[in-house]
Each structure stands twice: as C-alpha cells, then as structure tokens.
Design a protein around this nucleic acid. Structure first.
Lengths: 130, 130
DNA sequence: AATTCATTTCGCCGAAGGGCGAAATGAAGA
DNA sequence: TCTTCATTTCGCCCTTCGGCGAAATGAATT
C-alpha cells in the first residue's frame, strides 16, 4: 500500500510529467505530439511516459506507426485515479501550463506526418504564421 | 501553481516522510518521538520535518526543550490539505505503517525525558517487557 | 525480404536527494 | 553567566533521477 502510493507520488513529483498529464486531459495524444509540445528529446518523453504508465496514471494504445497515450480511467494503482482527479481539479492556471496548451493547439493543427518529419520546428513555424 | 504542487508532490514522494505524516494523524508528536519510531538519525528526521513544513504539510510548536509537530490544518500551500486528506483516507493498512503505529504506542508509554536519554533502545526495552 | 521510421532501450553525465556524524543553535535550568 | 541538551544546520558520501545521443525494436510500406 505504501509502496503503491510511493510509486504514484514519485511519478507526479516531476514538472515534466505533470505537464504531460495536464496535456492529456482533453484527450489522447501521440508521443510525437507530446514531444513537440514539451520540446524535449523523444527518449526523455518516452521515459516519462513509461514512468506514468507504471504508476497506472496513463494508458497506451498503438495504432500504425504511432503510439497514443491517454489518462487512466480504470484503477490499476489504487492511488492513481485519486491523484489524477486532484491534479485535474486543483492544478489549473499556471504560466507554463498555459504555454503548453497554446503550443498543443498549434501542434494539433499539423498532421502527424508533418509533425514527425519536422518536429518542434514545425510548431514554431505555425506560431510564426499566425 | 505548478511550483506549489511540485513542492507538495516531492515532499510526499518519500516513504520516510509519508510514515511521519501517518504517525502524526492521531495528534502532535515531539521530534524525539518520531526519531524513536522511525529509528533514523535525528539530523535525518529534522531534515524530513523541514521539507514537510516547507510544503505546508505540518506545523511546528515549540515547548520548553522540545519541538512538537502536527499535521497542517490551515492552507499554507493550496495542495497540502488535499494531499493530506488523500493520504489520510486512502493510505491505510500497510505492514510498515502498522509496525510504526505499534512502535509509537510503546514510545508514548515513555516520558519525553526517558525517551531523549535512552533513544530507540528504550523503545525496544518496552517491547521486551510486554 | 528490405526499408522506413516512430518509439523504446541502453549507457552515460551532471544534478538532486536521503542518510549520517560533527558542529552550531538556542532555550531552560543551575 | 555557564551548562545542558533537544533540535537544527553543515559537509560529506552514495544512490537515484532527469536529460541526451546512439543503438535496438518492431510495425507498416515497398
């Protein structure tokens, strides 16, 4: 029990991972989309997602070349859902998170093909055009 | 906001600190009592308490030679109380925590004077006598 | 079967964090 | 004022963890 709570607590005790959880609130996202928003190396994002998945905070769905992640909606870890709800309800207005949401909007205006080819550069290009 | 959540999350992302929070649920305790239960160095316990205090999870009260800590009951950090409630309601039956509670009972059967003089050894002596 | 390519795994680096002993602090008592 | 002593702070060690590039994986396409 302590062990299970500890896994969830350690998982959310990192800004990048909380940013990912907040990004996933509106719906599932592809790894490359998350990577483009956070502007970190794919290896880093993959590691974060693996930690979140192990904690039962996110689920994974593979479709074609891409892997989509979404917030957990079923209790794998008894503390995961409660923690997600807490983050959802209480962690709201924040400069970094608002920035992420704006960036996500631009990311989602691109096809996955374009995004994977161009990476974060394409996102900045969209920002420039608007 | 993200910053504030991060501080609380990192504070509870450690087994020793969660054990301390669970110990404090029935009521305030002296530093030496917590030290005797967890069987860690006073310096270590003090550091943990400082982290919990900075996160707004515990309050401090000085009385004579001793310092008493208790769970926060007023919102210093907007996430602290919610996290405490979550830990209180959901983190329950666990071998380590049960062990701590049993050890706490023995600790509380000693006066602070005896406890501070003898340390953890006195606690083991009580266990032996019962 | 070979290629492409999004994702993951591996190995490494530097920073952060838990643990302790020793020294500092500071309040109570002599 | 001087001593005592619970607690805290400081410095150090060692482990854990976030980050990255390079290599491995594995599914889809040619």
């Amino acid at each position: 029990m302590l062990e299970a709570f500890d896994i969830v607590a350690r998982a959310v005790a990192d800004r990048s991972r909380v940013r990912i959880l907040k990004l996933l609130e509106p719906g599932e996202l592809c790894v490359c989309q998350i990577t483009a928003v956070l502007a970190l190396a794919p290896a880093t994002i993959s590691k974060h997602l693996s930690v979140l998945k192990s904690a039962g905070l996110v689920f994974q769905r593979k479709q074609g070349r891409w892997v989509h992640y979404r917030l957990a909606d079923r209790a794998v870890n008894p503390y995961a859902l409660a923690m997600l709800i807490m983050i959802q309800e209480r962690v709201g207005d924040d400069p970094a998170l608002n920035e992420d949401r704006a960036r996500l909007a631009r990311v989602q205006s691109l096809s996955l093909e374009t995004l994977c080819d161009q990476g974060a550069a394409a996102v900045d290009a969209v920002a420039f055009c608007q």
